[in-house]
């Protein structure tokens, strides 16, 4: 009786069970800024979680501390962020149990790229920025696209206000178009990096409805991670 399949009983087929009009993605907003210094890295993200005109939460951190020297900032589709970061945590724990040491920031950066590319044809819809201290003790920032392209950068802005913030960082941190001689360029200090990062968020909150409420800033040095929170517009 193998010829009797559901196709022969069209009356009993429940159409729409596969729900083809469903979209698996949703933009939940948020922005990240990361700046690498000589012996430190600063990463900042706002704490607003929204979709459309609704604000779900004003206190959702988007910074994930993966190791004592590595912090991942992740925005975009929040359900993908949750899945990706918990998968990263699991894989880092497996590495720790296998090799009896914590993954370096460079290794995490590479693994994140591979983990994202694994979903090449159903991507994690996220904007990731990884900041930390590398194996030589230098501050590093890696930025990613949703399918896993990884790039080492000095400073990077991502998320909904990323395009708004990146030129500011290029100018203020990398001193682009400043017509300065090499000897006149100041060395980037921690204080300067933190103040530029918080200022960019105050500006972004003025123009981007998906960025606001609070900005959480983490300063990563070899001695540990310092955390602070600054108020942003809440409207």
């Amino acid at each position: 009786m193998s010829f009797l399949s559901i196709d022969h009983f069209s009356d009993y087929k429940v159409h729409g069970a596969q729900r083809p009009d469903f979209s698996p993605y949703e933009s939940n907003g948020g922005s990240i800024v990361a700046i690498a210094g000589d012996d430190f890295a600063v990463i900042a993200a706002d704490t607003r979680l929204s979709s459309g005109y609704s604000i779900h939460s004003r206190t959702q951190t988007k910074l994930f501390q993966l190791s004592p020297l590595t912090v991942l900032g992740s925005t975009g589709c929040w359900c993908d962020t949750l899945s990706l970061t918990s998968l990263m945590r699991v894989r880092m724990q497996m590495y720790e149990h296998t090799h009896l040491r914590t993954m370096t920031t460079d290794a995490v950066a590479q693994m994140l790229s591979i983990t994202m590319y694994n979903r090449r044809f159903f991507p994690y819809y996220v904007s990731n920025i990884l900041a930390g201290i590398d194996k030589n003790g230098k501050g590093v920032v890696f930025s990613y696209d949703p399918i896993g392209h990884c790039e080492n950068a000095k400073c990077r802005a991502g998320g909904t206000a990323g395009p708004l913030l990146q030129p500011v960082l290029d100018n203020q941190i990398q001193l682009k178009n400043m017509n300065l001689d090499e000897k006149d360029k100041p060395i980037l200090t921690k204080e300067r990096a933190v103040s530029v990062a918080s200022d960019t968020f105050i500006s972004a909150a003025e123009r981007d409805i998906y960025t606001g409420d609070f900005v959480e800033i983490k300063i990563i040095t070899k001695d540990g991670i310092e955390s602070m929170t600054i108020n942003l517009r809440k409207d």
């Binding site: 949703e26 779900h56 939460s57 959702q60 589709c77 929040w78 359900c79 899945s83």
Partner: peptide, 12 residues
Amino acid sequence: ANVDLRGRAFSD
């Protein structure tokens, strides 16, 4: 906490 149909979750 709230969990929606996509698995988006947050606590508040």
